[in-house]
């Protein structure tokens, strides 16, 4: 049956063993010694796809280490859909489970989360950013009921490691800050920006992303960073296009 042949072919592709199946789904295989070509195409093509999505990790750990991580990932998690830009969302969790990788380089999973956020932002839906004039029309009393919507391309990432600094580093030879980074990933036009945020600003945007009212988001921001300056933060985010709209509660 074709269904059995395809199930067994799939199983053969996903194994790292160098076996040459003589039969698949009850059918004889002519040229089983060439099965490796398919196995090879599978891991090599998905490694390239992952490399395109995770260029910083590939650069920092080198081709051989990256291949090891990518091959193991693709064998364990075959793509669930045919558009390769959607492949690799679980790479951070996969890397986190590989002791050989995170033992030496514990920042790798968070760097992967940042790179996935960049990938998502690149392909996310487009929207016109909210501009300051649209907010200026609100009455002062409206601010208490204001719910700002983040731009559909906005993604928030926080790490105890300096992943913003690592993201565009050429190699690991540099000195990196000891403290972690909070970041906003945003694509207001064609280009993805990765913006370093203060802890208060990150808490502010995270609360807004969860649907909090402006006042609640400010409380969260101040809790994370007592000196949080709402006016300066709003002005900077309106300027860079962090919001796409608002509601009044």
């Amino acid at each position: 049956m074709l269904r059995d042949l395809q199930a067994e072919f799939r199983a053969g592709l996903l194994t790292s063993e160098e076996t040459a199946p003589g039969r698949l789904g009850g059918a004889g295989v002519i040229g089983p010694e060439r099965f490796w070509i398919y196995r090879n195409n599978y891991v090599a093509s998905l490694k390239s796809a992952l490399e395109a999505t995770y260029p910083a990790i590939a650069r920092l750990i080198g081709a051989e280490n990256f291949s090891f991580l990518a091959h193991a990932y693709s064998r364990r998690f075959p793509p669930a859909e045919p558009s390769l830009h959607a492949y690799g969302g679980g790479f951070a969790d996969h890397v986190a489970g590989i002791e050989a990788a995170v033992g030496d380089l514990p920042f790798l999973p968070d760097l992967a989360r940042l790179e996935w956020a960049v990938n998502e932002a690149y392909f996310a839906a487009d929207a016109e950013p909210l501009i300051a004039e649209q907010l200026a029309a609100l009455a002062p009393g409206d601010y208490a009921r204001l719910r700002l919507a983040l731009h559909p391309t906005a993604r928030l990432v926080a790490s105890v490691y300096p992943v913003w600094h690592l993201w565009d580093a050429e190699d690991l030879a540099n000195d990196f800050p000891a403290e972690g980074d909070c970041m906003l990933v945003l694509r207001p036009g064609d280009k993805v920006d990765v913006i370093l945020l203060s802890p208060g600003d990150h808490a502010f945007l995270s609360a807004l992303a969860d649907g909090s009212l402006l006042g609640e988001a400010v409380e969260a921001a101040v809790a994370a960073e007592p000196g949080f300056d709402l006016t300066a933060s709003l002005a900077a985010h309106l300027e860079r296009g962090t919001f796409a709209g608002f509601d009044l509660d």
């Binding site: 042949l5 799939r10 998905l46 075959p78």
Partner: peptide, 25 residues
């Protein structure tokens, strides 16, 4: 060709057996 089995997309153009069953499918 085929590339999907068990809901996984195998990112290749894989060969079919040239049978009546495969032709019907």
């Amino acid at each position: 060709s085929w590339s999907v089995a068990g809901g996984s997309y195998l990112n290749d153009l894989l060969p079919l057996p040239y049978t009546q069953e495969a032709l019907d499918i």
